[in-house]
């Protein structure tokens, strides 16, 4: 399947999942964040610039759909997309264990970043720790499971990506490699 088609399909499907299905499958008031799927996917496959752009768009949509301060989720998902892109430029993330670790780290990072941004942008920080423990941890776990399943499934469908080693040579359309990667190669 062409990469852009897969991205578009994933994005639309995750939008529907997030706004229609997620509230219906919440467990004890905790629902997964399906919009993290296209963010991590694009970050892993198209680099940090595309990943951060996708993160910003998805986060902004989630901000407007909710009732929290606009921009908080956009910034946190931007960070996740950025780091996913950087991680993919450092190593090939295709195997199930690596995808599982990526999913977990991305979900935890998103929750922590979001929580931190919300707290920094509001006057009152009472109850933050207990919220992180009781809410963010479970949300991250729930999201990580969904993210891992989605990434593995998409990985099976999309075969047309060149190996990261090809990308490291800098001769593909997947974006210029990071300085970090260049240094590692030397």
């Amino acid at each position: 399947m062409p990469k852009n088609t897969a991205y578009a399909l994933t994005f639309v499907l995750c939008l529907l999942l997030q706004f229609a299905v997620a509230p219906a499958i919440c467990i004890g008031g905790i629902e997964p964040n399906f919009l993290l799927i296209p963010v991590v996917l694009v970050g892993l496959r198209s680099g940090y610039a595309s990943g951060s752009a996708m993160g910003f768009i998805c986060g902004l949509l989630e901000d407007f759909a909710g009732s929290e301060i606009i921009g908080c989720m956009a910034l946190s998902m931007l960070i996740v997309g950025l780091l996913a892109g950087i991680a993919s430029s450092v190593m090939e993330i295709r195997t199930a264990p690596l995808l599982a670790i990526t999913a977990f780290v991305a979900a935890v990072l998103n929750e922590l970043a979001y929580g931190l941004i919300v707290v920094l942008s509001s006057a009152d920080s009472a109850g933050v720790l207990s919220t992180v423990v009781s809410y963010s941890a479970f949300t991250a776990l729930y999201t990580a499971v969904m993210l891992f399943i989605a990434l593995v499934t998409i990985n099976l469908v999309m075969h047309d990506d060149p190996a990261p080693s090809t990308r490291l040579s800098g001769g593909t359309s997947y974006g210029r490699p990071l300085k970090l990667k260049s240094r590692r190669l030397r």
Binding site: S52, F56, I69, I70, G71, L78, I117
Partner: peptide, 11 residues
């Protein structure tokens, strides 16, 4: 995009 996000939050 990060600057834009922070600007949105501030606004």
């Amino acid at each position: 995009l990060a600057v834009l996000s922070i600007a949105l939050i501030t606004l």
